[in-house]
Design a protein around this nucleic acid. Structure first.
Length: 678
DNA sequence: TCGATCGGTCATGGA
DNA sequence: GACCGATCGA
């Protein structure tokens, strides 16, 4: 068959090798910007072009967004058949398979998925039920408890191990926490709900224990590709192994230098172990960088070489370019924001499109000031990462109603919905939630007898809905009608919140099953600012603000990296753990490698104090250690600082190429002495 | 039993 | 800003 695509000339030798090697296990080590996405896209197209049924191809990625984008691109270079490829995250894949095989594993096919806040709400109740003594003042909070439990699950280890290793301050309560974990597991089972971790665990168990299912799935998915393999955890690696049971046709793609999810149990050792798990693995290395200019690449190579556990890998490029990355001290967040705005306006006037520029940061709140400044200047932006649209109270309220309608045993959602009512507290709510769960169906809820008229109305409402026959759109409309008076009663800014609920109505139109809508909103929550941007009109291009984590796999012409201070990047939470510092450095690496032509590194000299950081807390910051390592400073330039302004530099001094290191040392010393003075 | 209020403590990343 | 325990009046 003659292909319409010239694969050979669209790819370099290594990429081509990876694309046409369709049989047997392959490990692709792909440096940043080396065209790893391109390989996955072309390989998908190649397989389909070879006549392989797209439904036999499975593409597992880190976010749903990247899976969709890749399939879109594959479809655009080949044809529409590529859209039938199965693509998504491990979690969404698990969701799909578990519903299909629920009957084999003592699980309702209509299970609901717990998001973080549902999960921590359960923990909070269990925690409260323990009735902690006064001596237990320092018992971890619900989020921390959940964190410990989730980590122990993801790392396949004990609660005790996690606490000894990472949070020794909670040692006195190991047993209590283990106990809470136990009860948490039991409650989830009773409620017919799964949390994020359960999705993976249950899928693995299904594949492990049911050889018929394992073989059926392995036959179905003959060609498996896994993106971002360095960020998979142990369970995910096991799932891959089991899925490839009958054919070993797996291509894992990854870059150990970009592993940034160990907080979620990711194990970049999975990459190293891959050849052992899949004997006969062929290793393919992609080392030519197609993204960044040489000066930027020099910097990022230097960052990697400062890493403690490094694998020899130096990227090279043929991209010309002479502009070195810029380092700049700014007085505070306001100055930082003003600097970015002025630069952006300058670049825009030179013809750079707004969506070719990104501002990256370690934590969601780092961009707060900037967002205000951008709004003032009327510069449109979308923000990825941080607080999500679905995290707002009123959206969660609605989702709780829908979850009840989908799964009346979901007591957590009952609790939320019931306590919204005046005069109903935790005690009363728990009783009713219990009764509702026992009733077992929405219809049966109508027969529960209660005193409160408001609750009677709720139960009656629930009993009238049938989530199996009514459309999600219809159900949401009825729910909103019921909820609206409560919204007005609960929140004084109800009109603003009402707008969000309208966005929800727009999203729900795409679904014909409530359970799919609910699964998606939990597994792939829409970003608020993206929704807003969509409403503003598609033609409008927007600046991108993103956490570094959410920027993984993306690239921009110009990148600003902000808040480069000790305590921000690296996060102060990593200070006393070398392994965690290494991960922070990889974050720095991921951030700097996003830039194609222009990279700006910014550091505010002062940040508002955020309490709880000891008596030495001071508004003066110290520059991030990552800028002082190796030859990093020699690779940066501060062209703006030939004439330092009093405004921005409280003390005189400029950055000149020969003396940069000394200047930085001076800077450290001076900031130190400021600390002393404080 | 509910809900309002107050003071102390801590604050990352996201499927 | 949110979370948590404590307290108090209804």
């Amino acid at each position: 068959m003659q292909s319409l695509i010239d694969f050979k000339n669209s790819l370099n030798a290594q990429q081509y090798d990876a694309v046409v090697s369709t049989e047997g296990p392959h490990l692709v080590i792909a440096g940043a910007g080396s065209g790893k996405t391109r390989v996955l896209v072309y390989r998908t197209a190649y397989l389909v072009d070879q006549g392989i049924d797209p439904r036999q191809i499975l593409l597992l990625t880190f976010t749903r967004r990247s899976a969709n984008e890749m399939l879109e691109r594959a479809a655009s270079i080949l044809d529409e058949r590529c859209r039938n490829v199965s693509g998504g995250t491990f979690h969404s894949f698990a969701n799909l398979i578990l519903r299909r095989y629920a009957d084999r594993m003592d699980l309702s096919p209509h299970f609901t998925i717990l998001d973080d806040s549902d999960a921590t709400a359960i923990i909070a109740r269990l925690r409260a039920a323990k009735g902690l003594d006064k001596a237990d003042k320092k018992f971890p909070r619900k989020n921390t408890v959940y964190d410990i439990i989730s980590k122990s699950v993801n790392k396949c280890t004990d609660v005790a191990d996690i606490i000894y290793d990472e949070m020794p301050q909670f040692e006195p309560w190991i047993e209590t926490i283990e106990d809470i974990k136990e009860q948490y597991m039991v409650q989830k089972r009773q409620m017919g709900v799964l949390d994020f971790d359960d999705l993976l665990i249950s899928l693995r168990n299904l594949l492990q224990t049911r050889s018929d299912v394992r073989q059926a799935l392995s036959q179905q998915y003959r060609y498996i590709m896994v993106d971002e393999y360095q960020d998979t955890n142990r369970i995910q690696a096991q799932i891959v192994r089991l899925l490839a049971d009958v054919h070993d046709n797996v291509m894992a793609v990854g870059d150990d230098s970009q592993s940034i999810y160990s907080f979620r149990g990711a194990l970049f050792k999975n990459i190293i172990d891959f050849p052992d798990v899949f004997p006969g693995t062929r290793l393919i290395k992609l080392e030519e960088n197609y993204r960044s200019s040489q000066p930027i690449l020099d910097l990022t190579n230097e960052v990697v070489s400062c890493a403690q556990e490094k694998f020899d890998k130096i990227l090279f490029t043929r991209q010309e370019g002479s502009r070195r990355p810029v380092y700049r001290d700014v007085m505070n967040e306001t100055a930082q924001s003003e600097y970015i705005v002025s630069k952006i306006r300058e670049m825009q006037s030179r013809g750079t499109a707004l969506d070719d520029i990104a501002v990256l940061f370690r934590s969601g709140w780092h961009s707060n000031y900037l967002e205000i400044e951008l709004s003032r200047w009327g510069i449109p932006f979308v923000k990825y990462g941080g607080q999500k649209f679905v995290d707002s109270a009123h959206v969660r309220d609605i989702v709780a109603y829908l979850k009840i309608l989908q799964n009346p045993s979901d007591q957590t959602s009952w609790m939320r919905v019931l306590t919204l009512m005046r005069g109903i507290g935790p005690k009363t709510a728990a009783g009713i939630a219990q009764a509702a769960a026992e009733a077992g169906s929405c219809r049966a809820c109508g027969t529960i007898s209660v005193k409160q008229a408001s609750v009677r109305r709720l139960l009656e409402f629930v009993s009238r809905i049938d989530s199996r026959t009514q459309s999600p759109e219809e159900i949401l409309d009825l729910t909103l009608q019921f909820y609206y008076p409560i919204l007005v009663d609960q929140y004084d800014d109800y009109d603003k919140r009402g707008n969000d609920l309208e966005s929800l109505q727009k999203i729900v139109k795409d679904y014909d099953l409530l359970e799919n809508f609910l699964a998606d909103i939990t597994l792939d929550p829409p970003e608020q600012s993206v929704l807003k941007a969509r409403e503003r009109g598609k033609a409008q291009k927007s600046l991108v603000l993103s956490t570094i984590h959410s920027a993984k796999g993306l690239e921009w012409d110009t990148v600003f990296l902000i808040h480069l201070c000790e305590g921000q990047l690296p996060s102060y939470r990593a200070f006393d753990d070398q392994g965690a510092i290494e991960e922070e450095r990889r974050l720095f690496y991921v951030a700097t490698t996003r830039a194609k032509r222009h990279l700006f590194l910014l550091r505010p000299q002062m940040l508002p104090q955020r309490g709880g950081q000891g008596p030495s807390a001071s508004p003066y910051t110290r520059v991030s250690r990552f800028l002082g390592e190796g030859r990093i400073l020699d690779l940066l330039v501060d062209i703006e600082h030939r004439r330092p302004s009093i405004d921005e530099r409280p003390r005189s001094g400029g950055w000149h190429s020969g003396r940069k290191r000394d200047m930085l040392t001076d800077y450290f010393d001076r900031t130190e002495s400021c600390l002393d003075d404080w």
